[in-house]
Design a protein around this nucleic acid. Structure first.
Lengths: 243, 243
DNA sequence: TAAATCACTATGTTTGTACATATTTGGTTC
DNA sequence: GAACCAAATATGTACAAACATAGTGATTTA
């Protein structure tokens, strides 16, 4: 692996180092509990000070991607997929950060009359068609999550978009809608026939079910999202502090 | 406001500074967009270097509690997320708030040699016994959650306590330990034989599995808690806002 | 042989210093 | 009065150095 930073670049060295570390994290070479080079050596290789390198390391440790242990070293955190409520990484970004290749198994777009609950959430009538997006995604070995999203007409989405791009990019760049607030409900349930067939598992097998309500800057509802995760494929992490 | 750190304390200065900053953030004096003292002055007042102070500031900025602007200053971010206090409700309080009567089905206290993972988390050896608390709780109709808690010897818990009182009350009132920070991991899994028998369900049936790591004011580990919730008996809600 | 000790390695903490860059402010000039 | 410029202010970036502490493994000792 080429280890060099551009000292002439206007991009700060600790940012460059951070980017490089993200690539290292994605590298299978460091995946299975193997240690990264130690801080002093790595700093020397990059021709930056240990302080600057640690600035980059700290960020990744904070994100839960790296684990440091005094007297031992620094390793990549086990690649169980997790979502930190603090950060707004999209599904694809999250996978990328961990070097897990994503495979899109299915993608289906349709215009449907919303169910009562959804119409209610969007504050619209049930006789107005809305965009429904279904996606089956996972690792190359097989799917592990089935998403269903409904979008408020306000988003302007046509269904013709290139959904290979991150959704939040599309909304922000092309439709000037920024997702600000998200409320989530996480629970466990048994897979029904439909979900089981999608996720290639048995009906009745455990599923992590995640409902997500997304709002824009003005707290207006934007997206209603349901995620069905195969058990043990996904861990939701939350950090909270008593105030 | 008294601004002083204990330079003799084994607790690192940047942690102490972080705690103090959290108190400042809570102080209405700095609430409405008013700026904190500048870094150099504040560092001088606390008798620490600017670097160390920035270490503390960085963490709070990363958490979205502070906003720094080059050439201007540092201020408290306005109107943060809720759901924090919700997370800090104890099980009994939570149920009470929902109007669900609790029934305690089983309670078992023992002293055990910790498994590697737990000893590791507590930063102790595996040859030192620790307190283990198992509880089966639920509605009058039947149990829906099985808890296992391990406590660091530091807590001073003897196992003779009246565990009908809320645990966090016991720790705070009787042992002067305040649980400050909690990290949680939520995932779905299948019930094994043991869990299934406790929760009066079938092996293989879906379980919401919640690992909870609790730390005290000085970020020292206090409790390692595992919760097995019967599917559909528990919903975890999170609210997060993009900063 | 088993326990205690010690050296080595790697991260953790902290300081002091220097210069860079964004913003605001106030004064000077046209 | 408006435009411009420069100083003051505050955070941002980066380095070097020193010592502390935790874990590991080898060597010595009981």
């Amino acid at each position: 692996m080429k280890l060099a930073l551009n000292h002439k670049s206007p991009i700060p060295l600790h940012i460059q180092a951070e980017e490089l570390l993200r690539k290292m994290i994605a590298d299978p070479q460091f995946q299975n509990g193997k240690l990264l080079p130690n801080e002093i050596d790595l700093a020397n290789q990059l021709a930056i000070s240990r302080t600057t390198l640690r600035q980059a390391l700290n960020k990744l440790v904070y994100e839960g991607l790296l684990i440091r242990k005094k007297g031992v070293g620094t390793k990549v955190a086990d690649a169980m997929i997790s979502s930190k409520s603090a950060n707004w990484l999209s599904f694809s970004q999250e996978m990328k950060a961990r070097g897990i290749p994503i495979k899109n198994f299915e993608l289906h777009v349709s215009w449907i009359y919303p169910e009562e609950i959804i119409a209610n959430f969007f504050n619209i009538k049930t006789d107005q068609k809305i965009l429904k997006l279904e996606r089956l995604r996972g690792k190359p070995e097989g799917p592990f999550v089935y998403f269903v999203s409904y979008f408020h007409p306000r988003t302007g989405l046509t269904g013709e978009e290139d959904f290979k791009r991150p959704l939040y990019d599309i909304l922000q760049a092309d439709y000037n809608i920024i997702s600000e607030l998200s409320k989530e409900e996480i629970s466990a349930k048994a897979a029904d026939k439909f979900i089981a067939s999608k996720l290639e598992t048995e009906p009745g097998s455990p599923i992590l079910f995640r409902k997500r309500f997304v709002f824009d800057q003005a707290d207006r509802p934007i997206e209603y999202n349901l995620g069905y995760y195969k058990a043990d494929s996904f861990v939701y992490t939350v950090e909270s502090r008593r105030s």
